[in-house]
Design a protein around this nucleic acid. Sequence first.
DNA 1: CAGTCATACTACGTCTGTCATAGTAAAGAT
DNA 2: ATCTTTACTATGACAGACGTAGTATGACTG
Lengths: 122, 122
Amino acid sequence: MTNISSDVIRGYNDTIILYLLLNKPSYGYEISKQIKTLSEEKYIIKETTLYSAFTRMEKNGYIESFYDHDITGGKRRTYYRITDAGRQYYQAKCDEWALTKDVIEKFIQKTEQNGGINYGNN
Amino acid sequence: MTNISSDVIRGYNDTIILYLLLNKPSYGYEISKQIKTLSEEKYIIKETTLYSAFTRMEKNGYIESFYDHDITGGKRRTYYRITDAGRQYYQAKCDEWALTKDVIEKFIQKTEQNGGINYGNN
DNA sequence: CAGTCATACTACGTCTGTCATAGTAAAGAT
DNA sequence: ATCTTTACTATGACAGACGTAGTATGACTG
């Protein structure tokens, strides 16, 4: 089975996390699960990667942390909300992505035998 | 001037280099220029990054080095040719790319139009 | 009521790829 | 004679990802 190597996604973990904060604040565990389900199990972020991203992004002013006290089982959560700077950074990263994609694809050869469609057997 | 941040391309430098070796052997300086022109100046690989990639990939058995003695000005070149293992690795990376692209794009919002971005290094 | 499970983190140290800086070396151009 | 272009090599720093381990809380289970 093909798995995504971490070096590839490196540099987009922050973007992925920010995306999940665009509409509402969230916390580590929830985000980690959302990444898993949204990516259809193709990408599972490591806990340490996730939490160190939070720390880094808070330091950079892209997110802000706060506590919510409606405990629903388990340890107290640290919630994060995206800041304006975070939204700007996210948008910039999205624009950068378009560029990066174009560049990388100049050096990628698509294998014909699987144009996204799977015929039959495995 | 739009520039791609290095963290994004990280993990694809090897792939890019291997692509340029698919049809003929080459050497550092030539490859560096080809990356520049093929990417339309959007990506300029750093010398140290390039040469350390050569070393790493030779150790991994993806490329082989040899000397060519038709000196055409400048210092003696070290040529590299891709191996079968290198071709396999390249193809695997191409397949991985398709996957990665799909995953990342689930977390990317496309903006209509946005001018020059300049993120990351330099 | 002890033990396990799921949740929700924190701490610490290692590894890898990138990159800044600097230097070496050879040939052609001015 | 020196500058520029070509073509590397050496060294060390750094940041992000990750392995490993530990802490803490409440819910469920026998």
